[in-house]
Computed example of a mutant assay.
Amino acid sequence: MTRAVVVMGVAGCGKSTLAHALAQHLGWTFVEGDLCHPPENVARMTAGIPLDDAARQLFLRNVAIALTGSKGGAVAACSALKRCYRDLIRQQVGDILFALPHLSRADLERRVGQRPDHFMPTSLLDSQLATLELPDADERALILDGTLPVAEQVRLIEAALHHS
């Protein structure tokens, strides 16, 4: 069975909430991707400056290291917006499942706006949506209805893990 999952997507889609719930359910390690960003990335995003591909490299490597460094399995919350980002993680981790909770822009904006203490401003949502590349058919990925209850999303991901 696959021992690594990345809950991916743009800000506000519920990555951290879902990844944490899934990790608890499976008894695996939870990796908060936001904590894998170097300080320079956090400063850029706080200032409303989108990250480019170069700025994301260390972040993505840090996420992959955290996933491979856990015993027994790990679930990370990580944007992984582009195929090349997912490929980088996949190259370092190996067998991995990506799960994307998908929501409307209005739902995302509402959720991001309800997080006043988070470094990611609502103003970066459009750049994240423009950057998002939905997983291709040849990727091991599951697109979920992000409006479903978290427990139902956890159940769907667990079923996909056991189906592999």
Rank of each mutant, 00 (worst) to 15 (best):
L18P: 14
N41D: 07
E139W: 07
A77F: 00
V6T: 11
E133A: 02
V7I: 15
Q91T: 15
A21G: 02
H20W: 07
L51W: 04
A106I: 12
G72T: 09
R56L: 10
L58K: 08
G14S: 12
D126L: 03
D138G: 05
D53S: 09
L125M: 07
W28N: 05
V42L: 14
F30C: 04
C36G: 04
G94Q: 06
E40N: 12
Q91C: 14
T46F: 03
P101E: 02
G9V: 08
G94M: 07
H20D: 13
I65R: 15
A54N: 03
W28A: 10
G14T: 12
Q91F: 12
V31C: 14
H118P: 14
D53R: 12
A141M: 13
F98K: 10
C36A: 13
L129Y: 05
A54E: 02
V6S: 11
A76I: 14
H163K: 15
C13T: 15
L97F: 04
A137H: 12
L60W: 03
R111V: 05
F98C: 11
I96Y: 03
E133H: 01
S123T: 10
V75N: 05
M45W: 11
E158N: 13
Q24F: 04
A74M: 05
L100T: 14
K15W: 00
P116H: 00
P50Y: 01
K71H: 07
H163R: 15
H37K: 04
L144R: 14
L142I: 11
L60E: 11
T29M: 07
A130W: 07
P39C: 09
R115L: 00
D95H: 07
L144I: 09
T131H: 00
L134V: 06
H118Q: 13
L58N: 10
M8C: 11
S16H: 05
L67W: 03
T131I: 03
S70M: 08
L100G: 12
V112R: 06
D107R: 13
F59H: 14
G69Y: 08
V75K: 09
A137M: 10
R3F: 07
Q92Y: 00
T17H: 02
D52R: 07
E152F: 03
A77L: 01
L129G: 11
M8E: 06
P101W: 03
G12T: 04
L144K: 12
L124K: 14
C36V: 02
A64C: 06
L124R: 14
V93P: 11
L35D: 10
H162W: 10
I49E: 05
L125K: 02
